[in-house]
């Protein structure tokens, strides 16, 4: 594994294990950080012969061609970012995925950039999670609009974020992929917005 900021929390204080009750004494929102994930930006052309097959061979999933959709396995999520651009977020090691893709995409037109040290994932969940997000984001988070398997890039409290609807849980949750330089601002804003609903800071995963 690479050393340095990789795998460490984006925050300079321990995030986990705090319960902050809201005005009615409840805590209807929770936050959780996933600081130790692999983030890789992949660019390539879906029309190119074998591009999809080569990526599928390494990740087990094909890059989604439909805008703002994700493809997911148990350890890896492939987010649509643009017509020729995807974000891989994975619990697998960046070096292994990079090596795998470098081999399978040899002589193809592609770009792969490791962003793991520059981004973090903040998960927001709970009964009132949608209300918190809606309070300074213009996206519609209604489940009929923000469907299973959807991801959207937008501005949340002015910060550029990639938002994914978390499908693997029974409760409402969204993953916010954010640059580390924006994460403290976003966290401060989120916890301030959740002042009324109350919130729980769960222990982060790794890091």
């Amino acid at each position: 594994m690479t050393t340095g900021v990789l795998g460490q929390s984006a925050f300079d204080f321990p995030l986990g294990g705090r319960v902050v009750p809201g005005v009615e004494g409840r805590s209807d929102v929770w936050f959780e950080e996933y600081p130790a994930l692999t983030h890789l930006n992949l660019r390539g052309n879906l029309d190119e012969v074998d591009f999809t097959a080569s990526v599928t061979g390494v990740l087990g999933i094909a890059p989604p061609g439909v805008p703002n959709r994700v493809a997911r396995t148990s350890d890896t999520c492939l987010h649509w970012l643009s017509l020729d651009e995807w974000l891989i977020v994975s619990t697998r090691s960046a070096a292994l995925i990079e090596k795998g893709l470098a081999v399978s995409l040899t002589d193809r037109h592609y770009a792969l950039v490791n962003l793991s040290g520059g981004q973090t994932v903040l998960r927001i969940g709970g009964l009132r999670a949608r209300d918190i997000l809606t309070s300074d984001c213009t996206l519609d988070f209604h489940p009929r609009v923000f469907r299973h398997g959807d991801c959207r890039q937008s501005l949340l409290a002015g910060a550029p974020v990639l938002i994914r609807r978390v499908d693997e849980l029974d409760e409402v949750a969204f993953d916010l992929v954010v640059r580390r330089s924006f994460s403290r601002h976003l966290f401060d804003w989120l916890t301030d917005a959740a002042h009324e609903t109350g919130y729980i800071l769960r222990t982060s995963h790794g890091g």
Partner: peptide, 17 residues
């Protein structure tokens, strides 16, 4: 609120553009 229709992402708020 002005909405602009991105050819790929659909209608989004002007602040995204």
């Amino acid at each position: 609120m002005l909405q602009i229709e991105c050819p790929w992402c659909g209608a989004c708020d002007q602040s995204e553009f």
